[in-house]
Amino acid sequence: MTAALDEPRATARRAPLTRLLRSELRMVLRRPRTLIGLALLALVPVVAGIGIAIATGSSSGESVGDGLASLVEGNGLLLPIFGLTMSMTMLLPLTGAMLAADALAGEAANGTLRGLLVAPVGRARLLAVKAFGVAAVSLFAVLLMAATGIVAGLLLLGGDGMLTSSGTTLPFGAGLGRVLLTVVLVTVQVWALAAVALAVSAWTEHPLIVVVVSLGVVIVSGVLSVIPALDWLTPALITTSWEAIPEVVKDPLPTATLLTGVLRAGCYILIGYSIALSRMLTRDG
């Protein structure tokens, strides 16, 4: 390096990471699509709560549904868990896929990814920032649903503590703990799908492709899991953990099952981010 080129400058080599993360979050949370998605998700538990409250009022004695639904009646703390597990079938995976699609493919199409690359933000760092944005906003979405679910549940359905599916009643604090545990489990599963979506997102400039492929993964997993001849494949499918989430309302907690679900999500996160990283490092900006 020549002396002339290397005149002393009291400047950092890289922009501070926290500044990048803050900027990313601010941007994602200003995107109209994100805001609409969050608002819709927040409404899900409220709408479910109103529906169950009406169903309970009109049909006395009859159970309002099967599975968790039958337990939500008069059991308000279960409403957020019901809302989250219900949304895990489609809405939340869709949200994760959408966030991941916008993070790389959308920004590439917009030309904004290029701006960050020449700043420069290193490619691995850029992926980390994007992954953080997706992860933080998915967590926020799930927390938001839990919050509206708790409020709507307690106001519309009432209940003292939480009745588990095993027939025991947990005190309010422990019930709240179950809601938070559900938040963690659901968030990790959304992260897993978002990681897969982010890998796709790194390969394309069309956000819609990312959403379509991600939903394809969900649907194909669902189909494979019901084919008896492919039972051996079931423990490896991304959707298998999703189906186990309602088990958080068992007492005692089936820790092993839930932990397996988290580990499975971890494998998908690792695979998704590995592929995304390799693509980011070689991709033309």
Partner: peptide, 9 residues
């Protein structure tokens, strides 16, 4: 502001 956040200098 967002572009500036990424500027190292």
């Amino acid at each position: 502001l967002r572009a500036a956040a990424a500027e190292p200098h």
